[in-house]
Every structure is written in C-alpha cells, then in structure tokens.
Amino acid sequence: MTMIWYIKGTMVLFKKDLMDAFNSPFIYIIASLFSLIIGWLFFNYVIAAKDLTTLSITNAVLAPVFGNINLLFIFLSPMLTMGLLTQERKNHTLELLLLSKLNISQIVIGKFLAGISMAWFLLLLTIIFPVMIGLTGHGDIGMIISTYVGFSFTLMCFISVGLFASSLTDNPIVAAFMGFAFLMLVMLLAVSLNATNNWMLGEIAQYLSIAYHFEAFVRGEIRSYDVVYFLSFTGFFLWLTKESLETRKW
C-alpha cells in the first residue's frame, strides 16, 4: 500500500467523523459545560490570588487551573470517544469500513484523529485564560507553551484509552464508563504510591501514572522520557484497539 493512499484513506474517514461530531449538538453541550466549570474555577483562583503574596500569579492561578483542566478531561474525553466505534458497530457500518480498502490501522488512526480534534476544540476554549493573564503582564510564555504541549500528550493518552473502550462494546455509556474507570485507575496510581513503603514499587507506580508525567510540563519542563512515556502509552492503546477490531473475525 502506498503512503499516499494510507494518508488519503485515513483523512476520508477522519473528515467524515469530524463532520459527524461537529454537526451534532453533543460536542457543544460538553463544550459549554466545560467552559462553565473552568471559567468558574479560574475566577475563584483569581479572587483567591489577591490574598497571596508569596506565589507568582502564574503559579497561583494558571497552574491549578491547568491541573483542573487535566482532571476534567479524564471525565470528558471518554464522553468524546464513546461514540466513535460503538456507533459504527450499532449501525453496522463497521462492516462497511472493514470491507472497504481501508485497513484496520487506517480506521483506528482516522478515529483517533477525530477524537483528538474534538478534545483540542475544547482545549482551545481555555486559551482565553493565559491570554487574560498575559494581558495583565504577569504571563509566563514558556510555561504556558510547555503546558499546552503537555496537554496534547495527555489528550492523546486519554483519547486512545477511550477509543479502545469504544471498540469493546456497542453501548456508548458502557464505553464511556470503561474509559473513565481506566483513566481514573492510572491517575490514582500517583496517589496510591504514597501508601506504599516499597521504594521500588513506588517508583514504578509513579512512572506509570499520567499525572506524574504531566506535572513536569506544567512546571515548564519538557523531558524526553515523559514524551517517550506518552507516545508509548498512546501507541499501546491504539495497538490494542486494532487488535480488538481484528478479533471480530474470529
């Protein structure tokens, strides 16, 4: 298969799913809910920051807001991805895709890109907060950029987990819960390592946790081993999704 067809075929599916997503009210409902919560949190942190003198405004306002955005995405991204493969299965259009000239990895990547685009649409709504802080003259451009790079990576992880969950069932609600449960589990690894006295186990749990790798980005650090972690995490779940679609034949 030529590279050109690989990209072209993937894009056809991606475009269709993107149209689907943005033609339905669902994404706008999620987006408004998301903006409401984040806007309210931002407002609260700004109010609280006026009493604090020891922290910079970036650390007092933006850092916690960014942490909350990441947490919210654990809930929201399984909702964004829940329909991607469940709907195809329910409408029996998955058979159409599997019979077409697209191979399974093209289907997985196309769906993944559609999920990422939806997540990025939500994320773009949050750009207003650093811009507002920046206009006051307190912004830290380097930290903001590294945080959004970090967001891109965590979203890749979240979406790939959600996509895998949606390949397992034909019920979107079940898919959303499975995706959410798994992401919560990975997130909680960071918390549970406090409870262990075993240093080795603690280190491993810490390395496996998404939150631990994301933290560095919020501090303005971009470390290569975090990037490796995110890419391999995403790659692993995309591979699982592909395998899950392939087992349909058996």
Binding site: D20, N91, H92, T93, L94, L96, L99
Partner: peptide, 12 residues
Amino acid sequence: GFLPENPPLYEN
C-alpha cells in the same frame, strides 16, 4: 459488493 442483513448506513 456486499449488502449485509443490516444495511450499513449512516443515518445522518
């Protein structure tokens, strides 16, 4: 060309 038992249609 295959027409499955449940037609594979995108309703929207």
